[in-house]
Computed example of a mutant assay.
Amino acid sequence: MLKTTRRDFLKNGSALGAALGTGGLARIANAQEVLKVGVVYVSPVAEIGWTKQHSLGAAAIKEALGDKVELTIIDNIFMPQDAERVFRELASSGNKLIFGTSFSHGTPLQKVAPRFPNVAFEHCSGIVHLPNLGTFEAKYYEGTFVAGAAGGYMSKSGKIGFIGGFPIPDIVGPANALLLGAQSVNPAATCNAIFLNSWFDPGKEKEAANTLASQGCDVICSMTDTATGVQVAGENGAWSIGYASDMSKFASGKQLTAFTLDWTSDYVNPAKAVAAGNWKPEVRWDGLAAGVVKMAPYNDQIPADVKVKLKQLEADIGSGKVHPYGGELKDQDGNVKVPAGSVLSDADIRGMNWFVKGMIGKLA
């Protein structure tokens, strides 16, 4: 596996090779030919978090294909102009499959993909699809609903806290589901939400977690790319909920669970498809049933009978018996958004830009 730095790649990328020709996605010529795969991370790989989970997915390609694959990993690419150049150079240098791992990689991928029609592009968190650009995403809301239920069982104040990077649908939806999960146990539960307007700002995250604790929130979920939220929650004696990775080692024994992400299938299956010559752009959006979303071990302080209920809830969501956004659902102003007996449509979930009743905070 080749891992290079953002600086080195951007400096030397123009010399990496001639642009690939046009045409369909060709099959690997023979068993001896190596599949070249490029993966671009939005941040450096840390011990836990969003990029860590993507690194595990990329590593699974190597494990699955062995010497028949060559990986080029570029990290810390977050500026659109840098990302466009990186994607272009990866395609020009013979990579037949290229992954972008952040919503911010969307516009650069949409510009580069049409110029390399015989290269397969995969975009995590993407919303635009092209003949050679597929997308994949996780149903985070399924995990936050289960985690919220755990919080509802364990909270004494009935006040949940949520910290998000940005008020976008991918974050607003899981925040709503967190509260709805808590309300499935305690209908009077509320949730205070704070957005950092950053994916990585430990200072702001620490301040937000302390603020939530001072407001009486005794369960705090932080949907960012650091363990700061669970750490500060533990320091304040509050329960915490981890995101992307199991963050229990940072939580002073107070992590209830974490909704973790396993991208293995989203990396390995496209790599195998490109190698076999039958890759097609897909829209993949999976959760608990597919194992893309998984719940970390439940805290030993959660009563045994509650753990049984949480495990059953996982199974019921996976089977479709329980839908986190089942009606009746009202927004903050009391307007009915989902009538009783109905569920929110997939399109409305993916475009959610409103808070459910009981959420305290603003999206603007």
Rank of each mutant, 00 (worst) to 15 (best):
R6W: 10
R7V: 14
R7E: 15
G13L: 13
S14K: 15
G17I: 08
G17L: 09
A19K: 11
A19T: 13
G21R: 15
G23P: 15
G23H: 15
G23W: 09
G24N: 07
L25G: 08
A26R: 14
I28G: 12
Q32W: 09
Q32G: 01
E33C: 11
E33N: 15
K36I: 09
K36D: 14
V42P: 04
V42W: 11
A60C: 11
I61N: 04
K62H: 09
K62P: 02
E63H: 15
A64Y: 04
G66W: 12
L71P: 03
I74V: 15
D75K: 03
F78N: 04
M79E: 14
D82Q: 10
A83R: 04
E84V: 07
V86E: 06
R88S: 13
L90Y: 09
S93L: 13
L97Q: 13
S102Q: 07
S102W: 14
S104I: 09
P108D: 05
P108S: 04
V112M: 08
P114C: 14
F116G: 12
P117S: 09
C124G: 03
I127S: 13
G134Y: 02
A138M: 08
Y140E: 03
T144R: 11
G152R: 02
G158R: 10
P167M: 00
G173Q: 07
A175Q: 10
A175C: 11
A175D: 12
L178D: 01
L180H: 03
S184G: 06
N186P: 01
A188I: 08
T190V: 13
C191Y: 02
C191G: 01
L196R: 07
W199T: 05
W199R: 11
F200T: 14
D201E: 12
G203V: 10
E205D: 01
E207T: 15
N210K: 12
Q215T: 11
G216I: 07
D218L: 01
I220D: 03
S222T: 06
T224S: 00
D225E: 07
T226W: 03
Q231T: 12
Q231E: 10
G234W: 07
G237N: 07
A238N: 07
W239M: 04
S240W: 05
M247Q: 12
S248H: 11
K249A: 12
F250H: 07
S252A: 09
S252T: 03
G253A: 09
T257Q: 04
T257R: 01
T257S: 09
D266N: 15
D266V: 06
V268K: 10
V268I: 08
N269Q: 15
P270R: 08
V274D: 10
A276R: 06
W279R: 12
K280A: 06
V283I: 10
V283D: 11
R284M: 09
D286G: 11
D286T: 15
G287F: 02
M295Y: 02
A296R: 02
P297Y: 05
Y298W: 12
D305H: 02
D305M: 06
V306K: 13
K309F: 08
K311Q: 15
A315Y: 02
D316S: 12
D316V: 09
S319A: 13
G320M: 08
Y325G: 06
Y325N: 03
G327C: 06
E328W: 04
K330A: 02
Q332E: 01
A347V: 11
N353A: 04
F355Q: 03
G358E: 03
M359W: 00
I360M: 00
K362D: 02
A364D: 14
